[in-house]
Amino acid sequence: MKILVCISQVPDTTTKIAFTDNDTKFNEDKVQYIVNPYDEWYALVRALEIKETSGGNVSIITVGPASVDAIIRKALAIGADDAVRIDMNPSDAWSVAKTIADYAHGKGFDLILAGKETIDYNGSEVPGMLAALLNQPYIALASKLDIEGNAIRCEVEVDGGIYIMRTALPAVVSAAKGMAEARIPNMRGIMAARTKNIEVVSAVVQPLVGTKKFALPNPKSAVKLIDPENMDQLVELLHNEAKVI
């Protein structure tokens, strides 16, 4: 089984968010970057588990400048076999999906795995676009993925139920919580990652979406504390002041 896992770099979840260049750019000053949790904990680990039981190869791909090599090494340390970096600024989902599709086209990947969404720009966009560009079926937000011969069986949690989706391979799947358990790289993995190959490919794609401006939400006014003995007052406030009941 030849598997391609799309990984992206995101700021650590505790990062303080700020902007520069007249609020048009995320301020990267002192920001710690990590592999997007959905990509690392679920998509990559599930790909490795599949390889461990049925053989094959796990490649990772990321679209970004040379500064993302650190998170590529982290993913290699967890166990990916090789890596591709498409040397381009990932300015919108379309340009990311298009360059990955152009790269993957004709290379015979049986399965492409991505994360449910990036935790910075919260798109949930890239994997669906990728599937459409490759003319492959797309299973979004799968919390379980099993191989059944030359097909896959996925479970997707939706309101009030679970979809069990089956499709022949090749296919694209985005991974949600539940698909696998996070792994911590061991010393051997970290050493091995140093010598694994990162292929660099150049690409140019015009984005279809541009950023105009970022802003921080209005700060919340201070909390109104209510006496625990006076729940009638809380109900009254929710009714008359907040008008939510």
């Binding site: 919108d92 989902a93 379309w94 999906a97 919260n122 798109g123 949930s124 966009e125 890239v126 994997p127 669906g128 676009m129 990728l130 599937a131 459409a132 560009l133 797309y138 979004a140 937000l141 997707v156 939706v158 309101d159 279809l208 979406v209």
Partner: peptide, 23 residues
């Protein structure tokens, strides 16, 4: 932006080469 939207909107956007804003 529910399950249908998350699943189908990006595919439609890529098929018709449209800019997508999700959520």
């Amino acid at each position: 932006h529910d399950y249908t939207g998350r699943s189908i909107a990006p595919q439609v956007a890529a098929k018709i080469e449209a800019g997508l804003i999700s959520g």
